[in-house]
Design a protein around this nucleic acid. Structure first.
Length: 412
DNA sequence: TCTGGGGTCCTAGGACCC
DNA sequence: TCTGGGGTCCTAGGACCC
């Protein structure tokens, strides 16, 4: 198989190119960003302005940020200061206070994301979705796909995406997904990079192990402790040694990927396994002292999950909660019920029972609700009669509710 | 001044059944 | 009285990804 990996670069405002910009710290409509700017600078004539035309000086800065937001992404200019994705914005503000801070307009991101993917699918139909800004493409059977080793097709895709969205993208071309993803990073932004099987030693082996998709901070640290820093060093270890230290499955996988071996197909369709909603509070809450607030948030999370399920046409039978304490330790509890449900009250009832099984004496910074073991009602997995009806107040339900009320009595 | 939100997959122990 | 393995499902936690 020949694979492309394409990722789109999501920064859109041309006047910000080359400047330190951090995206993150909350969701906001672009209109709302504009409204705030108008408010902050009333003396300026804003008529006809859109964000892509506003002078750099007017954009909000990272300096003075308070809150628990993290950076979704940062431009290369911001990375120079040590700012990177997933970094807390308070810390980022210390490192680079002059950086421009842009919120995420999620509706806008989704619109662009769909455009990015549909544009590619029109050219090469076998596309695997890897999140908002990334896809794998199997172009083995695309007519003309082999010209110049894939470069011609990659250029066509780049050009089409730019026409449709105004965004640049980077493309890696390789014999499999693993190497294509690595290749896509060689020439960012707006680059094309072609890696062949024989390039393994020259182009892949010098890379740090952390560049392998699937080696995260924990595995990398352990590899480093054993003196393994690059993919090449990893490839020199025997499979037996890797299995001994990293387990049968992960050890064997590490060996395979270090030799550039990856047989995974491009998967064009998949069903969701779970849906969840979670939120981090502005300040840590206490189950007793902040009961009302916690109860309201809990109910809202259940309603949101239920709405997500219904909108997408799913129901689930495993209902669970997630808590993160003030010390950042997380706990989860879940329970599997008899039927499938997408009903907010049913979800809340069972999630409420899960809540009673965790320590609520510690302060809580995050609360989440999850529904798993999903089916699409109407398919044979969700047979009639196994689907639980939306909330009906049987005596049993009332007893359960009374139980939950001990926790959050001011609801209902 | 700590560390978002939405996911997937894997592991491991125990229950339960044959 | 003592003692089997498989297989599957459930639950909790954790690594990892975007």
């Amino acid at each position: 198989m020949d694979a492309f990996f394409a990722s789109v670069e999501l920064l859109r405002y041309p006047q910000l190119k080359g400047l330190p910009v951090v995206i993150g710290g909350g969701r906001r409509k672009e209109d709302d960003v504009l409204a705030r700017l108008r408010e902050a600078y009333p003396e300026r004539d804003w008529s006809g302005d859109t964000l892509d035309r506003i002078p750099v000086d007017f954009f909000p800065r990272l300096s003075g940020y308070t809150g628990r937001g993290v950076a979704t992404t940062a431009t290369y200019a911001a990375r120079q200061f040590g700012v990177g994705s997933a970094m807390g914005l308070m810390k980022a503000a210390k490192l680079c206070p002059q950086a421009i801070l842009l919120p995420v307009d999620f509706d806008e991101v989704r619109r662009i994301s769909r455009l990015f993917k549909s544009t590619i699918a029109e050219i090469a139909p076998l596309v695997e979705d890897r999140g908002v800004d990334e896809v794998y493409i199997d172009f083995t059977d695309v007519p003309g796909g082999q010209r110049e080793g894939g470069r011609v097709l990659a250029r066509l895709i780049q050009k089409s995406i730019f026409q449709a969205t105004g965004l640049t993208c980077s493309i890696g071309v390789a014999p499999n997904k693993l190497m294509a993803k690595m290749a896509s990073e060689f020439n960012k932004p707006n680059g094309i990079s072609i890696v062949h099987e024989d390039d393994l030693e020259d182009k892949i082996w010098p890379l740090p192990c952390r560049k392998i998709n699937g080696v995260g901070p924990k595995a990398d640290e352990k590899l480093q402790r054993h003196g393994i820093h690059t993919v090449g060093e990893l490839a020199q270890r025997s499979p037996a040694w890797l299995v001994q230290h990293f387990g049968k499955s992960y050890g064997a996988w590490l060996h395979a990927v270090s030799w550039g071996r990856d047989e995974r197909p491009v998967v064009t369709e998949s069903e969701p396994v779970s849906m969840s909603r979670e939120t981090t509070f502005e300040r840590d809450l206490h189950a007793v002292r902040d009961r009302a607030e916690l109860g309201a948030v809990f109910t809202r999370l259940c309603e949101q999950v239920a709405a997500d399920l219904q909108r997408k046409g799913y129901a689930g039978k495993t209902i669970g909660i997630k808590l993160r304490y003030d010390n950042f330790q997380s706990v989860t509890r879940d329970t599997t019920i008899d039927g499938f449900t997408a009903d907010a009250a049913t979800i809340r009832r069972h999630a409420g029972l899960c809540l009673k099984r965790v320590d609520l004496s510690r302060r809580i910074r995050l609360l989440g609700v999850r529904v798993g073991k999903l089916v699409k009602p109407g398919t044979d997995a969700a047979l009639p009669g196994r689907y639980s009806e939306p909330h009906s107040k049987t005596p049993r339900d009332k007893a359960t509710d009374a139980h939950t009320d001990l926790l959050f009595p001011e609801l209902d």
